[in-house]
Write a protein that binds this DNA or RNA. Sequence first.
DNA 1: CTGTTAGCGCTTTCAC
DNA 2: GTGAAAGCGCTAACAG
Lengths: 461, 461
Amino acid sequence: MAGRAARPGGACARAEEPGGPRQRRRLHHHPFGLQHGQRVPQHGPRPREPAGGVPRRGLPDGALQALVLREHPPRQGHPADVPCRLPGDPAPQGDEIAKAAGDLQNARTARILFGNERFRRGSGGTGVEKAKSIKEIARLAGVSTATVSRVINQNGRFSKETEERVLRVIRQNDYTPNMSAKGLRTSRTRVIGVVVPDITNPHFANVVLHLEMEFTRRGYSCLICNTNESSSLEKKHIRSLTAQNVSGIVLISSTRNYTELDSLPVVYVDRPSRSEKERGEGVMIESDNTQGGYLATRELLGAGCRHILILKCLGNDSNQLARYRGFQRAIGEAGVEEEEALRINLDAVSIDGARKAVADLLDGGVAFDGIMSTTDTMAAGAVIALREHGLSVPRDVLVTGFDDCQLAEACGPGLTSVHQDVAEMSRLATELLFQMMRGERPERSHYRLPVTLTVRKSTRR
Amino acid sequence: MAGRAARPGGACARAEEPGGPRQRRRLHHHPFGLQHGQRVPQHGPRPREPAGGVPRRGLPDGALQALVLREHPPRQGHPADVPCRLPGDPAPQGDEIAKAAGDLQNARTARILFGNERFRRGSGGTGVEKAKSIKEIARLAGVSTATVSRVINQNGRFSKETEERVLRVIRQNDYTPNMSAKGLRTSRTRVIGVVVPDITNPHFANVVLHLEMEFTRRGYSCLICNTNESSSLEKKHIRSLTAQNVSGIVLISSTRNYTELDSLPVVYVDRPSRSEKERGEGVMIESDNTQGGYLATRELLGAGCRHILILKCLGNDSNQLARYRGFQRAIGEAGVEEEEALRINLDAVSIDGARKAVADLLDGGVAFDGIMSTTDTMAAGAVIALREHGLSVPRDVLVTGFDDCQLAEACGPGLTSVHQDVAEMSRLATELLFQMMRGERPERSHYRLPVTLTVRKSTRR
DNA sequence: CTGTTAGCGCTTTCAC
DNA sequence: GTGAAAGCGCTAACAG
């Protein structure tokens, strides 16, 4: 295979074609062909026919694109270079689909929402045998499927010898239970949904990593859903998760009004409900953001700052507000007055947005000796702006961040930042979720984890 | 509920108890109680009994911890503060379980691998009705389930009027198909597995975000698996994914020898096979890392650097090597000789590791005028080390990074970095995966995407 | 302790 | 164009 002559290809060098030119045009021929000796079931899923079969109809995969695109726009990369674009790439059918957005209006939308993959693999392929079932294991072990099931799930009611025999057969045949069947039968899939606003936010990435580790440890998988801060996308994700019979959900969101979740174990993480008591159900874990804002501000005050710029972001993240309240408490206690001019509210969290905002302030001649930022990202932007204006951190201005992510370590002189105990947060979230999945009621419905201040050079002259 | 008196609680303030003290001890009472009028099926899953039922046996959730812990250790947060620890937190039963690691040795391991959630929700709860099935929809629409199915999947063979009626009923009842059943029947679940080494790596987080967006657009979900660079964990994840009948897999790994994947659409992203032709199957997409290394090095050479420190990492990521080769090519073309002393090989990618290594070199009096780092993270560490030694970037030393992540924007004066077109990579990966899922053969089996250089101040004096 | 069996919700063949 | 019915793989009630 590797010895074949490489075809020149377009912009991308070294494109190989494993199938060789002869097969190139047989697009509808499934690469994982049907095994010849395979049994053809009377009923049940029809294995792929070699060529014809049901012709592909309905919308191609590009269809949903237009639908979701409006609220989930693809991030701009470098729009100039779009290399190696595939031929036949269907142009998104914008208007036609877009008007069906959000609801099930017609068949086309139905297809979008529920459609099948048309071309399934044949369950046998080139030398690949069909996955073993519990029946097969039962036959080989000389017991009933019920017994195999009991052994697998350690539900008791079997003898030591039977157990050993069954387990041996399981091992020898490399058997793994079919989770779809299990899920159908038990309404639980050993999959946990994690709904997160934006996984590229280092803080959330960290949360997801830790959650995933905790789940894996317990033999569960992690279905991840980015909402991109869109509430309608969030709702879709949640519907999708319930449709998939997930065992539980971890939700990073301020929203609490999903009736879909009433019968499902849910743990809310990181973002408290906006209306404080929107819905009683569900368990909530958050860091003590107010305390974090307080600690950061105290650090600045302790170093002598008296004119502290507060850099925060409006938007969905209610934690920003809590951090700001901590700031207010600290300066209040210190007898420092809050200055209207020293408050920046950004629309979105970004390095460059913060940089520009701080630069504007500096250009306008506003004076301050400290910056308390409610995220590391914005703090990084602030540090850049200061440097560009010839100001030194920490000599001229002290800066604190929030989240203590990699950025804080790398930024300028090292950024003092409020550290959230993400590992503990994730551990606790998982623990509580599993309690609920077991049918137990967690001791509390609200946990607030202490934060600490990681002091770096940005606040120590 | 919100009006109830808050119990003082332990270290965490404001702990609420939604159930009130009376219910507190009834841990085995399911919070989502059984609806009273609910039908009790003769067979099939038994809804939770109020109290007794099958007593909880076998290992608690902590069991798998010890098993996986050794290869997937929890990252250290701030070990000092472990607040709000739950009571009854089971101590992991280390040795007992650990010796069963890696294989199915005994019943206990079986339970760990396959065990059920013991306590399912009653399918009805407080006012929550059972999820509707296709049968219910069929009844309400006055058609058969077959017809409903055909409408949902747009498989044809129904009249316009029938279609409208069915869709109306579906809408009115807020029906969503049960994906477990669908998965069982069709062996495909509209879920795509993404296996990634470490999601906190900003580059991978970015890839995952874009993949997830592409999947969501097409109505698919994203099951994410962190391998933490452990090959045995990777294997477990892959087995788990196949057991769950995922529709396809995106794999960021150098490994190509999973027979489990032979019958499944797989796209390899980012990391080429180590042995270049280990297995012909599967489609591979990567950035042109060699070209990236080349571009970065050229940038340094063009600015006059003649003694360039190469900062790379040994380990699983074969891209590091490609980038290094680009470096070699560039200096070769420029007639610059590679200096043994100017090569740092780190064990792992970290800011602090790079900082220390570069600091050691500086302390040792090794002289260089440029640094070509194979990741932004290490570049950030290098910049810190330089600054700590009183050297200025870019005045004294020029630096380039790789990946063009947030760190590059925030680091020092702004880091010139090689930009990978992650959006296009994800788009292409998804496109190819869906082609394979449809049974089509992609045009090529190997795609190499062009990279660009994002020039910032670290290379422009 | 073990086996028989119904059926979870869905898709698809076959018969009309 | 439509419906009846089988059966995907698994669990759990029930009978022995």
